[in-house]
Structures are given as structure tokens and as C-alpha cells.
Write a protein that binds this DNA or RNA. Structure first.
Length: 219
DNA sequence: GCAAAGATTTGCT
DNA sequence: GCAAATCTTTGCC
């Protein structure tokens, strides 16, 4: 029905892209939107994906899938488009998007998003339960894998959620058609030196180079 | 059954 | 620049 306000909602992220090669999917994910629907007092939160990391196959010694299916990582061995959320260092949650066909374990870690909507809600979620001293700049609200989950209220209960389902309160949406694909570059992944070579050095961290919301270590 | 390290973030030296 | 916070998962006995 035309003229009835918003028009039809944006399409969810294309699952067939996620079913394909993980590095290509990771490139397509840059510029996409991470969306958390409004809930209670909190309005809708939207962020533009600007930093991701690929973890591909059991042979990738940096991947949680390297030891085969376990209670923690079994989602990685399932169908593409599903969220894999884990707890790291006993305190930070990290959000991944499962890729490639079922039984082939691979995932893309969402390392940083640029806040677009619901910035107040993101700041509220970041500060909740901790007396923050210095103020947080808008662009830095989700500038790291643990911070993305904190700003969007994502924890392990979201593991298994279908991020390509338009009805999911937490989901991915495609980059708007009127927005150009951002220039991107690849760099080594962060915090995986334990994996040894070549896994510690492969340039599977993809970033929107010009973004002010990249995670801290590199820019 | 226990010890060790981890796909991080923050605050202090 | 470095170490603490904090707890789950993994590896080895």
C-alpha cells in the first residue's frame, strides 16, 4: 500500500551470500546493518558494520571449530545466518554470524559497528552496571567485539538466533541500495597469536578503513 | 578432577 | 605500556 508511511521494511541480509565462501561473505557484511528492535523503554538500535573477522574451517587453528563440534561451538557446524555468541575472558560476549553450508564450520566475528540509531540506548546499555568515569563518544559505543554486544544487549542467550529472519528482534539487514560499497582492506586478525602460522597472519580481518568506529589496537 | 589460557576492555603507572 | 577483572572451556593427570 503506497502512501502509508514507512513503506515496506528493508530486506534481511541475503542468506545465500552467507552460505558462500566466508571471505566473500565477510566483505559483503561490511556496510550492512546490525538491528535490535525496540523493547520496553529502549528504542530501536542500528549500527553499520565496519569491522569483521573470518574464521574458516577446522583447519583454522585460530577458530573455535578447530577441535570439532563441542557444546559451545556446535552452532558453527549448522546452517548459515545463525548467531554464534560466546563469552570470552569471563566477561565479554562476542557475536559471530555462521557461514558456509551445514557441517562446514565457519563464522564471521562482528568486531565493530558505527552507531546510526538508538545511540542513547547504546550508551545506557554500555554504562549499565558500571560507573563509567569518562564519557563515551558516539562513534566509540560499539568499537570492539565485546562492546558491540554490550551496546546491543547481546549475550549467549542470542546464540542460535536466525539473523536473516526479518521477524527476529536481533538481525542483519543489507546495506541500503543507495549507499555505495565502502572501500575496505584486510589486515591480520587480532588476538590469535596462539594459533601459529599462517593462521596468526592471514589478512582475514576486514575493515572499512575510513570508519571512526574501528576497534582500538589497529585503525 | 584440576590447572591454564582465552577471537577483551579498562584503568593506572 | 601493563596488569587486573572474571569464569567458561579445554587439556592433561
Amino acid at each position: 500500500v503506497t502512501g502509508s508511511g514507512q513503506g515496506r521494511p528493508p530486506p534481511p541480509f541475503d542468506r545465500s551470500v552467507l552460505r558462500g565462501p566466508t571471505l566473500a561473505a565477510a566483505g559483503s557484511l561490511l556496510g550492512a546493518r546490525l538491528v535490535r528492535d525496540a523493547a520496553g523503554d529502549l528504542p530501536r538500535r542500528v549500527g553499520r558494520v565496519v569491522e569483521v573477522e573470518a574464521y574458516i574451517g577446522v583447519e583454522d587453528r585460530a577458530s573455535h571449530a578447530r577441535m570439532g563440534p563441542t557444546p559451545r561451538n556446535h552452532v558453527m557446524f549448522g546452517p548459515p545466518g545463525i548467531a554464534y555468541v560466546y563469552l570470552v575472558y569471563g566477561m565479554h560476549n562476542c557475536l559471530n554470524v555462521v557461514t558456509e553450508p551445514e557441517s562446514r564450520p565457519a563464522a564471521i566475528l562482528i568486531r565493530a559497528v558505527e552507531p546510526l540509531e538508538g545511540i542513547v540506548a547504546m550508551r545506557t546499555a554500555r554504562i549499565r552496571g558500571r560507573p563509567s568515569r569518562s564519557p563515551i563518544a558516539d562513534a566509540r559505543l560499539a568499537a570492539g567485539p565485546g562492546l558491540v554486544c554490550a551496546a546491543f544487549d547481546i549475550d549467549r542467550s542470542a546464540s542460535g538466533v536466525d539473523l536473516c529472519d526479518p521477524g527476529s528482534p536481533l538481525r542483519l539487514e543489507s546495506r541500503p541500495a543507495d549507499e555505495a560499497a565502502p572501500p575496505t582492506i584486510g589486515t591480520p586478525r587480532v588476538g590469535v597469536s596462539y594459533a601459529g602460522e599462517p593462521w596468526a597472519s592471514v589478512p582475514w580481518r576486514l575493515i572499512v578503513a575510513a570508519s571512526p568506529s574501528l576497534s582500538r589496537p589497529r585503525g
